[in-house]
């Protein structure tokens, strides 16, 4: 059904007439039957329903049971799995909250860097200079790597005794600086705190900053240059132009980047699983690692589902706070209208 009707959609647009040609007249809208939009939505709704909505509802059901899908009895425990997460004497309490704390540390340490460094890079790469496209590609390149590649690569780069990094630091004598800061010899990049967190944040920044930079670049190109011209005429300094033109113009983009980055950082799993294996001790074992181990390692899927829901609720609240804090206030829509008028 959906397969038969889907190809109809692109047909009315002859390929020759490229999109919104400047000054071109608009074609009258073609309206289909009332069910047309639903047919278009159907393929997505089917996938969303199968892989998101249904498992989410089933997860709530699971979290109310002592659930191991292979065991004959799956006793109903009500909110017991949730209560355990707030009961300091239960087996899961310490693990779960240690994991949540580790996730929190990572979010707090990585998000500010992942917000600012890509913005600075985007501003630098938004200028016109030879080799700009090449540099943009270079910065974006690590993002296409999978976490397995990044994790294993840096496990060897950062190995305290055999790694390239410590070798280079030693050759250049920069390790003395780190030793002065209290680092052991060799610098324990993956085997002691705070170095393990520094490594994990650093690797994550190297790996993902390209994505945020691309979003920022798109946002920067949407800030009307007339505003910069006007600000210059008014005698605004570079700093003032950044503060009063760039930042307000980027507000919606910032809200998006902040929300996505917080969610991505809170879902950190592969880096610490591969690079530190949750160590030293359990200090970098994130909430997701705890959930995976509980659900698929120890087969306590009910408890794992409850943990998952608690984490989701927490992230939902944080995301709402982010959006409210960065929402567009009255009057800030002016720049967009100004551009349209031009």
């Amino acid at each position: 059904m959906s397969a038969a009707t889907a190809p109809v959609a692109p047909a009315p647009r002859p390929p020759g007439a490229a999109g919104p040609a400047p000054g071109g007249r608009r074609r009258p809208l073609r309206r289909g039957a009332w069910w047309t939009p639903y047919v278009f939505l159907a393929p997505f709704a089917a996938i969303f329903g199968t892989f998101v909505a249904f498992p989410a509802v089933r997860g709530i059901w699971m979290s109310l049971h002592d659930w191991d899908y292979l065991m004959p009895s799956k006793p109903f425990v009500g909110l017991g799995n949730y209560a355990d997460l707030f009961d300091p004497t239960s087996v899961v309490f310490q693990k779960f909250w240690d994991g949540m704390a580790a996730t929190g540390v990572f979010v707090v340490a990585s998000v500010p860097v992942l917000l600012t460094v890509p913005l600075l890079l985007a501003m630098a790469l938004n200028r016109k200079f030879p080799g700009r496209t090449f540099l943009r590609a270079v910065v974006f390149l690590p993002y296409v790597l999978g976490v397995a590649v990044v994790g294993v690569l840096f496990r060897f780069v950062l190995d305290p005794n055999l790694g390239v990094l410590n070798h280079l630091l030693h050759v250049t004598r920069l390790d003395r600086l780190l030793h002065a800061l209290g680092a052991g010899d060799p610098v324990p990049w993956l085997t002691a705190q705070p170095w393990a967190w520094i490594s994990l944040v650093g690797v994550t920044v190297w790996w993902t900053l390209g994505f945020n930079m691309i979003i920022y670049l798109a946002g920067l190109q949407d800030v009307p240059p007339e505003l910069y011209d006007a600000a210059k005429v008014d005698g605004a300094s570079a700093r003032q132009r950044f503060r009063h033109v760039t930042l307000p113009g980027l507000r919606p983009v910032l809200a998006f980047v902040l929300t996505m980055t917080v969610l991505a950082s809170a879902n950190m799993f592969g880096q610490s699983d591969l690079m530190t294996n949750g160590g030293p001790g359990t200090s970098t074992r994130t909430a997701l690692m705890v959930i995976l181990d509980t659900g698929l390692g120890q087969y306590k899927m009910g408890a794992a589902a409850a943990m998952g829901y608690l984490l989701s609720i927490g992230l939902g609240i944080v995301s709402i706070v982010n959006f409210v804090a960065l929402r567009e206030r009255g009057g800030t829509r002016r720049p967009r209208r100004a551009r349209r008028a031009s």
Partner: peptide, 18 residues
């Protein structure tokens, strides 16, 4: 023993003659 031995570093060190 070296301090701060990484994952698999013990056998790699043997292979490297360290």
């Amino acid at each position: 023993s070296a301090r701060d031995v990484g994952q698999d570093a013990d056998i790699i060190a043997l292979q490297n003659g360290q």
